[in-house]
Amino acid sequence: MRRAARVTRALGDTVVVRRAAAPFTPLAAGGDAIWGSGVRCSLGFDVSVSGAPYFLTAGHCGNDSWNWSGTQGGQEIGQTFDSHFPGTDYALVQYGDGGADPPAPSTSTTAASSRSLRRPTPTSASVQRSGSTTGVHGGTVTGLDATVNYQAGSVSGLIDTDVCAAPGDRGGSLFDGDTAIGLTSGGSGDCTFGGETSFQPVTAALAAEGATIP
């Protein structure tokens, strides 16, 4: 931490270093809206790639599982097509054609299906996060282009917020009305005692994968 402080002091006001009240961890736990091989996560946003249906979730979710179902032990609905973590934190899952129904759309995937943000979300902006463990919670953006150091490695370019989250919410969506903003990466605290949560900007994932939100 002392080394980081020395480096950032030379950069002046362009960098802010904050110590979290508790260690940041990927928001992982068992049981959720999308089930993998021994893990559960939250679906972020339904997207389209070259006309084919996919969805976005957290990259550390995609690293944990190749196959996904909409219920625990249920029929497979898709397979991880591409996954990035650490460095960034997003995964692209391709829906299968086996006839399985995808998870019922959450409030966030329905509300934010019409457009994605093409400019940085300003600090102090009001946002909402949806995850299958804690549902929808609101808060504000507290920082941009943040770097979070997880045990598995660092993730950069994240959006910091004071929105709470809990295990199982990872991969879920950050949005403002009908505007898609980000994917839940990790944080500290929970929705009982507060906390802070960081998000992978969805525009970076869309651009890298050539995906669009329908």
Rank of each mutant, 00 (worst) to 15 (best):
T88V: 12
N149F: 15
T71F: 14
T161C: 13
T71K: 11
Q75E: 08
G153Q: 06
F85I: 04
H137C: 08
G168Y: 03
G168Q: 02
L92K: 01
A165Q: 05
T134V: 14
T147F: 10
S154G: 09
W68M: 04
D169A: 12
Q128I: 09
V141S: 07
T140K: 07
G135N: 08
G98W: 01
S106Y: 02
S83D: 00
T107Q: 12
T110L: 15
F85S: 07
Y95W: 09
E76F: 11
G96W: 01
R129W: 03
R170Q: 06
R118C: 02
Q72W: 12
S132Y: 11
T71M: 10
Q75S: 14
P105D: 14
Y150N: 04
G171A: 14
A146T: 12
P122K: 05
T140I: 14
G168V: 06
G78K: 00
Y150E: 07
A111W: 08
R115G: 06
P105T: 04
D169Y: 06
T121P: 00
G98H: 05
G62K: 00
P86V: 13
P103F: 04
D145K: 04
T107R: 12
S65T: 02
T123S: 05
S156A: 13
I77A: 09
G87F: 03
S126N: 08
V93E: 00
G99N: 08
Y95V: 09
T110S: 15
R118K: 05
T147C: 13
T140Y: 10
V148G: 10
T134I: 14
V136Q: 10
R118I: 09
L144S: 10
P102C: 15
Y90T: 00
T123N: 08
G98T: 01
T88W: 05
T109I: 15
G131Q: 03
I159F: 08
T107M: 13
W68L: 10
I77G: 06
I159Y: 03
V163R: 04
N149E: 07
I77P: 01
T109Q: 09
W68D: 01
P120E: 10
G153N: 04
R118N: 06
D82G: 05
Q79T: 12
T71H: 06
N63P: 00
D162C: 07
G62N: 01
Q72R: 10
G96S: 14
V148W: 05
A112W: 02
G171Y: 03
A112S: 13
R170P: 00
T133F: 15
D101P: 00
T107V: 15
G73M: 13
V127F: 07
G138M: 11
E76A: 13
S132E: 07
S83T: 08
G153E: 05
Q79G: 07
S130M: 10
A91P: 01
L117D: 03
G96M: 04
A165Y: 02
N149D: 09
A100P: 00
G96H: 00
D64C: 07
D160S: 15
Q94A: 15
D162T: 08
